[in-house]
Computed example of a mutant assay.
Amino acid sequence: MKKTNIALATAVSGLIALAGTVASTSAVAADEKEKCYGVAEAGKNDCATKTGSCAGTAKVDGQKDAFIMVPKGLCDRLAGGSAESA
Rank of each mutant, 00 (worst) to 15 (best):
residue 51 T to S: 09
residue 37 Y to R: 06
residue 24 S to Y: 07
residue 83 A to G: 09
residue 35 K to E: 15
residue 73 G to C: 06
residue 68 I to L: 06
residue 86 A to K: 06
residue 75 C to Q: 10
residue 24 S to H: 06
residue 2 K to L: 03
residue 21 T to Y: 10
residue 19 A to Q: 12
residue 68 I to E: 00
residue 24 S to E: 12
residue 20 G to P: 10
residue 70 V to E: 05
residue 11 A to S: 14
residue 59 K to L: 07
residue 86 A to C: 07
residue 81 G to T: 00
residue 82 S to P: 08
residue 51 T to Q: 08
residue 60 V to K: 07
residue 20 G to W: 07
residue 5 N to M: 03
residue 3 K to Y: 11
residue 56 G to R: 00
residue 50 K to P: 00
residue 24 S to A: 09
residue 33 K to I: 09
residue 13 S to N: 11
residue 3 K to N: 14
residue 60 V to H: 12
residue 23 A to F: 09
residue 60 V to T: 15
residue 5 N to F: 05
residue 76 D to K: 11
residue 76 D to P: 08
residue 72 K to Y: 08
residue 43 G to P: 05
residue 22 V to W: 01
residue 62 G to V: 01
residue 57 T to Y: 08
residue 79 A to D: 12
residue 85 S to G: 00
residue 38 G to A: 05
residue 77 R to D: 15
residue 61 D to E: 08
residue 77 R to A: 09
residue 50 K to G: 12
residue 11 A to Q: 13
residue 37 Y to V: 07
residue 16 I to C: 01
residue 1 M to S: 05
residue 82 S to H: 10
residue 20 G to D: 07
residue 16 I to F: 07
residue 41 E to M: 09
residue 32 E to W: 09
residue 2 K to F: 02
residue 68 I to V: 15
residue 25 T to D: 11
residue 32 E to H: 11
residue 48 A to L: 01
residue 31 D to A: 04
residue 32 E to K: 15
